[in-house]
């Protein structure tokens, strides 16, 4: 961020339009990213978008930055190599629920565990779009899809829960029809030092239309979602008349003014305390009992892999008498032969 140079939305637009389906949530996400990037102050040449395979993984072709469209599930590994090679770059990973939760699950959890400073945009439409409608690891249990005519059998992954299990330090959730929310959260993700995971609840107009309708429709969204901000009370509803309290070991939805509940009783969101177990409860909240938690749920400081790695390099350089490859060749057990025949 020291290379401050004012960029605009236009800097990140491509000449050609994105080739997602009309009405796909991808278009809004792209627009939000293009609006968010100038706010981060990062030099445009220092931004790299990496992806795996899937609809969302076409992202790097649609944004005017350095881009690398990789292999199915392997975007996290490619991004890791880029970031370790040049920690000065701002590295973004565009990925989907199939790409990161299924085929790339291993790379996904290890990226979080290592905590490289990479921003993950996880497009979660709970379906395989590019291969035309098979279930994904986030598809709700019992769903009928092309490959589950009798309903899916296994429990879906919750990306936030998985991220915390993998020692993740930053998790946020947004929905694709709320540009303002996305922009705000993407900027937060970019400024977080370490791996930041943003789960984007995304609509697939073709294969899973209205999958998130309960939280996207104007009538329902205020009651069905709660937007969390660090240091602010956990309130929701059209007039912020509802809130969350802790009862025994569970979260509970309450109405302000009912049963003697006042605003003072409402929990205050603490995103930065890594021991705050409410992060875990918040990502697990599901309709109809709870609203869906949105915004930055967890944002904890931790050392990054690349900083520690380059720190070790610096210490080794300072301590070692070997300064280059010639020195290395001549180190340890070597011996000299004179130019004569034996003896």
């Amino acid at each position: 961020m020291e290379n401050y140079e004012k960029t605009t939305v236009k800097d990140f637009k491509m000449d050609q339009a994105a080739r997602w389906c009309p009405g796909c949530g991808g278009h809004a996400v792209l627009a939000a990213v293009q609006k968010a990037l100038p706010e981060t102050g990062i030099k445009k040449e220092n931004i790299v978008f990496v992806s795996g395979i899937g609809c969302s993984s076409r992202f790097p072709y649609y944004i005017n930055t350095y881009g690398f469209h990789g292999l199915h599930g392997r975007g996290a590994a490619i991004a890791t190599g880029i970031k370790l090679a040049n920690p000065g770059l701002s590295v973004w990973l565009a990925t989907g629920d199939g790409d990161s939760m299924a085929i790339g699950g291993n790379h996904f959890i290890h990226l979080l565990r290592r905590n490289l400073d990479i921003n993950i945009l996880l497009f979660n439409n709970k379906i395989y779009g590019l291969t035309k409608g098979q279930f994904s690891p986030t598809t709700p249990k019992g769903s009928i899809t092309k490959t589950s005519p009798n309903g899916t059998i296994a429990s879906p992954f919750l990306p936030g829960e998985l991220a915390m299990g993998a020692q993740g330090n930053f998790f946020a959730r947004v929905v694709d029809n709320d540009l303002e929310m996305m922009q705000k959260v993407f900027i937060a993700a970019a400024s977080h030092k370490g791996t930041s995971l943003v789960e984007i609840l995304q609509n697939c107009v073709i294969f899973n239309d209205a999958v998130h309708a309960e939280i996207t429709s104007k009538e329902l969204r205020d009651d069905n979602t709660i937007f969390l901000e660090h240091g602010k009370p956990m309130l929701f509803g059209r007039n912020k008349e509802k809130g969350l309290i802790r009862e025994d070991s569970r979260m509970k939805v309450v109405q302000i003014g009912q049963n003697g509940i006042t605003r003072k009783d409402i929990l205050i969101h603490n995103a930065i305390d890594r021991e705050d177990t409410r992060h875990y409860m918040l990502v697990r909240m599901m309709l109809p009992e709870y609203p869906i938690a949105m915004g930055v749920i967890r944002s904890c400081e931790a050392s990054t892999y690349e900083d520690t790695y380059y720190g070790q390099i610096q210490v080794s350089r300072d301590k070692s008498t070997i300064k280059n490859v010639d020195d290395l060749f001549m180190s340890g057990n070597i011996f000299k032969l004179e130019n004569h025949n034996g003896d």
Partner: peptide, 25 residues
């Protein structure tokens, strides 16, 4: 001590893919 980045990856695939990423960079 001479600046090598040697990364023990989570698997063989991540080994080669991270190397490709590093080459891109």
């Amino acid at each position: 001590n001479i600046g090598t980045i040697a990364f023990q990856a989570e698997d063989e695939i991540a080994g080669v893919c991270s190397a490709i990423g590093a080459s891109f960079a």
